[in-house]
């Protein structure tokens, strides 16, 4: 197989499989990091000094070091240092390790955005809830939460778009996502070798997917436009 046109169907098929793994990592990260980020945000806002200091210390570590190193540590530390290879050697183990590293990393970024969102809701909203006899939980769920969401949609959108592309970092622990699949055609895969264009072509997948994400998030922003 020599011409790109002949290679195309094979390459697309392989890239699709890789992109499915990319999407899975993307979705699992969001599902995990959205709630975990909220818990971390409450931790860093805690009135108990020890809790808030410890939480902010963790955020500092996670945001201050490369995600790529975090991936390597989560994947290799248990096996190479603790001699307890909990992840096994398979694709499933790699996916699990990558998910954990991504969730923790993104939860820390989200938590800072949440914290800003919570603090930007005027204290008068909270006090109005109090004098109406609401509990702290009721005030958060029924008063603060939606106002916070409205404020954090733009910064969170930025993170989500970055995440789509950051999933490529999982390549460092050989997760078979789309970059891995594209790169494989250089060494040889599906009977094609020495082709670099499939690797370049992966960018198109990210671009299209981020286009969809952008439209959806803009829709959410518009939906929350009904109040100020």
């Amino acid at each position: 197989m020599d011409t790109i046109l002949e290679q195309l169907p094979v390459v697309i098929g392989a890239l699709n499989v890789g992109f499915l793994q990319t999407l899975k990592l993307f979705a699992v990260t969001l599902l995990g990091a959205f709630p975990l980020g909220l818990i971390i945000a409450f931790g860093s806002l805690s009135k108990i000094k020890a809790v808030s200091v410890a939480t902010q210390f963790i955020i500092w570590i996670i945001r201050g070091t490369p995600l790529m190193i975090q991936l390597l540590i989560v994947y290799y530390f248990p096996g190479l240092v603790l001699h307890n290879p909990i992840w096994g050697g398979g694709e499933q183990g790699r996916f699990l390790a990558a998910s954990i590293a991504f969730i923790i990393n993104y939860a820390c970024y989200f938590s800072e955005i949440y914290r800003g969102g919570i603090q930007s809701v005027p204290v008068g909203q909270y006090e109005a809830g109090l004098v109406l006899g609401m509990t702290k939980g009721q005030i958060f769920r029924h008063v603060t939460l939606l106002q916070m969401i409205k404020r954090i949609v733009p910064p969170i959108s930025n993170e989500i778009i970055t995440l789509v592309k950051d999933t490529a970092l999982a390549r460092i622990i050989a997760l078979q996502e789309i970059i891995w699949a594209g790169q494989a055609f250089m060494k040889g895969s599906h009977g094609i070798s020495g082709a670099i264009w499939p690797l370049f072509f992966t960018a198109f997948y990210y671009l299209v997917f981020n286009g969809i994400v952008t439209v959806l998030l803009a829709g959410l922003e518009r939906k929350l436009d009904y109040f100020r």
């Binding site: 005027p122 008068g124 909203q125 006090e127 109005a128 109090l130 004098v131 006899g133 609401m134 509990t135 029924h142 008063v143 939606l146 106002q147 409205k150 009904y226 109040f227 100020r228």
Partner: peptide, 20 residues
């Protein structure tokens, strides 16, 4: 305290209506 404060109502200077 939550039950007790319901003996009182409070109207704030800055209204503090819930915008949503």
């Amino acid at each position: 305290i939550r039950r007790k404060r319901l003996h009182f109502g409070l109207v704030f200077q800055s209204f503090n209506l819930f915008p949503q």
